[in-house]
């Protein structure tokens, strides 16, 4: 049973985002996919599918991440600026419920957004290759992983916005995304160090969100299967990592004086 207050806050966050023309990015995305489909058909013989999948999924990922960061960082600070948070918290709403509601609301927005973008990718794919292959199921897996990325980014943006200004939140969240994309390399580097340095580096490397295993775009574009084990592990990882980040956000936000 879901707490109805969380549900209402989530619904309202979704509604605000949709009405704030967040979904307008879909127009840009549709244009990009159409242009790509037409151009690719003419210039890259043989690898049309590859290019469309690579380009499409990369665009889905980047569009979503930009949205997740730029809405996520404002989720708390905007409500303070407009003093709406005060009217919410003076009701029987706990602060952690507010954080949870915001998180689910933005995640939901991104899932819907991704759904429409996914249709665009498949449409472009159908246009250039006139058929679907069995291995195209992999695209769904890649899209699922992209959504998992959004979930972590949303949680991180919300975490930073629970104590920092929007600008700093955006910078922090974006940097963590960039660093997290190299998470595996960082763990490799850390593993090479020894002693206390190695221990500290390894600890830090494990704290960084692991975006590298969530990116299977190129693999999928080549029609290679994604191991089921990886799907399972990534899902579990994103769930616990987001839970940890959100708990951090709650711990900070519970203590914050809303001046």
């Amino acid at each position: 049973m879901m707490n109805t207050r969380i549900l209402h806050i989530a619904t309202n966050t979704f509604r605000e985002a949709v009405r704030d023309r967040v979904l307008y990015n879909l127009i840009a995305f549709a244009l990009l996919m159409s242009a790509a489909a037409v151009l690719v058909g003419q210039i890259s013989i043989q690898i049309e599918r590859l290019v469309v999948i690579n380009l499409g999924l990369t665009a889905v990922s980047l569009f979503g991440i930009v949205i997740a960061i730029f809405i996520g960082i404002g989720l708390v600070s905007k409500e303070i600026d407009k003093r709406t948070l005060y009217t919410v918290l003076s009701r029987p709403v706990r602060r952690w419920e507010f954080i949870a509601g915001k998180f689910f609301g933005l995640s939901g927005t991104l899932v819907v957004n991704t759904f429409f973008m996914a249709i665009g990718v498949f449409a472009a794919l159908a246009y250039v290759s006139h058929h679907f292959e069995r291995s195209d199921v992999g695209i769904l897996v890649a899209l699922y992983f992209i959504i998992l990325q959004f979930v972590i980014i949303t949680a991180l943006a919300l975490f930073f916005s629970s104590f920092s200004t929007p600008i700093f939140s955006a910078i922090f969240a974006f940097w963590l995304f960039v660093i997290g994309s190299f998470a595996q390399d960082l763990r490799n580097f850390a593993a090479m160090a020894h002693g206390t340095t190695g221990l500290l580096a390894t600890g830090a490397a494990y704290l960084i969100p692991n975006f590298s295993a969530l990116n299977v775009i190129s693999q999928v574009a080549h029609g290679e299967p994604v191991p089921h084990r990886l799907i399972l592990l990534n899902t579990a990882y994103v769930l616990v990592y987001s839970a940890a980040v959100l708990s951090g956000a709650v711990l900070i936000f519970e203590r914050r004086n809303l001046k």
């Binding site: 605000e16 704030d20 709406t84 005060y86 919410v88 009701r91 029987p92």
Partner: peptide, 26 residues
């Protein structure tokens, strides 16, 4: 509670705003 100089959610109508707050108040 009415805060000082409130702005509220730009994209909601007055009715939606009140419904939302009513829901939050249980």
């Amino acid at each position: 509670f009415l805060p000082e100089q409130p702005y509220f959610y730009d994209h909601l109508t007055a009715r939606e705003l009140l419904r939302y707050y009513g829901q939050l108040s249980g």
